[in-house]
């Protein structure tokens, strides 16, 4: 058993904190995250709740907790979809080679040509702002990322001896991909999943910041920041909490991904 890297511990702890907060917010928050209280509006931390109150008097801690659900939910769903589609196409490209591979890589090239926020804004124009749009836009951007990694890793696996053996045993490319390639590339995919989920949280925050995220009253860290911009001088606490939440969640997932990579990839583990 290799020593578990410290980054993994920190990453796992931070990630768990946010996942825990998200889950907890479904059953309990200090106050109703959608309940306004005009008397408490713009009160600072301590004066009204632990993290203060926002422009219509909602408890900031409660919105940040509920925002974790929105943010993690969208990020995880988007990455899961993008990861599944990307990994599948990447593996298929590695298995099929030839024209199919070129077509997949060309499609990836087209997707890659659109900067993520821009393609999300375009999709937002087409489908209207909302959780579905955010998931689709972010997931779409993840597809080429996973496809590239899966293809690269799968190509390495395909060149190994046990694949030749499986081939000679009469197994078809689909079966080989599922039985032999997937288990051997899954570690890399899982590492990438953690890191891309972090990026997805950043992307979701950016979209919400531009008014293209989930509709109110669903709390969203990005929208909290966009609203807080108006109160920058009068209520700076509104800017700090959601930003720290975003940074904390992304940091946790990145560290988790890095830690997992160090754990599964001995060569990198040494270098670090």
């Amino acid at each position: 058993m290799r020593r578990v890297p410290a980054t993994l511990w920190i990453g796992a702890a931070l990630s768990l904190l946010f996942v825990g907060a998200a889950l907890l917010s479904r059953v309990w928050t200090p106050a109703d995250p959608t309940g306004m209280n005009i008397a408490a509006r713009l009160k600072g931390p301590g004066e009204a709740g632990l993290l203060g109150a926002d422009q219509i008097g909602r408890d900031v801690l409660s919105i940040v907790m509920a925002g974790a659900w929105t943010s993690l939910g969208i990020a995880l769903t988007a990455t899961a979809i993008g990861g599944a589609v990307g990994t599948a196409t990447g593996m298929a490209a590695a298995a099929g080679r030839g024209g199919f591979e070129r077509a997949v890589m060309a499609a990836n090239g087209v997707l890659f040509a659109f900067p993520p926020i821009l393609s999300a804004i375009l999709l937002g124009a087409l489908l209207g702002p909302g959780a579905g749009t955010a998931i689709l836009a972010i997931g779409l951007f993840m597809v080429p990322v996973f496809a590239r990694i899966a293809r690269g890793a799968a190509l390495q696996v395909w060149s190994r001896d046990f694949i030749k053996a499986a081939r000679m045993a009469g197994k078809g490319p689909v079966r080989i991909s599922i039985e032999h390639v997937l288990p051997n590339i899954s570690a890399q995919i899982i590492v990438q999943f953690a890191i891309q989920t972090g990026l997805a949280i950043l992307a979701e925050a950016g979209l919400s910041f531009l008014g293209m995220g989930v509709a109110p009253p669903n709390p969203s860290w990005g929208r909290m920041l966009s609203e807080a911009q108006t109160y920058l001088s009068s209520a700076p606490h509104l800017v700090l909490a959601p930003g720290l939440a975003i940074a904390g969640a992304v940091l946790g997932l990145n560290l988790l991904g890095d830690g997992l990579r160090d754990l599964t990839d001995p060569r990198r583990g040494q270098a670090a």
Partner: peptide, 18 residues
């Protein structure tokens, strides 16, 4: 958002779509 909260008080649910 505020109208939504007011409507809720009389049992009417407004689903906000941006």
């Amino acid at each position: 958002e505020i109208l939504q909260a007011f409507f809720q008080q009389i049992g009417v649910t407004a689903n906000i779509v941006s």
